[in-house]
């Protein structure tokens, strides 16, 4: 690309407009195609959700138990720190950050995951309160699987959207 700062005329012909648009969309889709998740990203994201749900169950079970009351926030804080580590790894690998809420069709995947994890969080809380630890286990596994599936689906939708423009 030229390093010139000069702008082309602001009354492009249809061919010039098409060339400019094609170059812009090409830059966009090339960038999206080169974006990739760090190794173990999906599993780490799944583990993050598993930790959040386990923290909800411990919170539900804690009652007047001081250990439980301390353990749940510690687990949530650990999840927050893990999120920071994951974001840092992504940024280091790709030189960009794309949040799940980035405008576009992939955002629907994020909102679906938010609804699922929200429902599972409430379920884990009440399962913990009921001391139904077998159910907590199932919920944690479901949350982990949801995280893995959603991250993979999100990336596929994001790439397809930019490639299809």
């Amino acid at each position: 690309m030229s390093e010139s700062n000069s702008s082309p005329a602001l009354d492009p012909t249809p061919a010039e407009a098409a060339a400019a648009l094609h170059a812009a969309e090409h830059a966009q889709s090339d960038l999206a195609a080169d974006v990739s998740s760090p190794p173990g990203w999906d599993a780490a994201y799944g583990a993050l959700f598993a930790l959040i749900l386990a923290a909800a169950a411990v919170l539900g079970a804690s009652g007047d138990n001081l250990v439980g009351q301390i353990a749940s926030p510690v687990m949530s804080l650990t999840a927050a720190m893990l999120t920071g580590v994951l974001v840092g790894r992504w940024r280091k690998r790709n030189g960009v950050w794309i949040s799940g809420y980035h405008p576009g069709p992939a955002r629907r995947v994020t909102w679906a995951l938010v609804v699922v994890i929200g429902a599972l969080w409430a379920a884990a809380f009440f399962a913990g309160r009921a001391d139904a630890w077998w159910l907590v286990g199932l919920i944690v596994v479901a949350g982990m699987a949801s995280g893995i599936v959603a991250t993979r689906r999100w990336m596929a939708v994001y790439r397809a959207d930019l490639a299809g423009r």
């Binding site: 400019a20 170059a23 812009a24 090339d30 960038l31 794309i98």
Partner: peptide
Amino acid sequence: HAPARLQLCAMLASVDDAQFSLLRDRL
């Protein structure tokens, strides 16, 4: 409207933020 700025905006529109050096290399 300048090609470099249009492509810069196109790349930035597809992400939340991007490192300066990555944009420099791609452009």
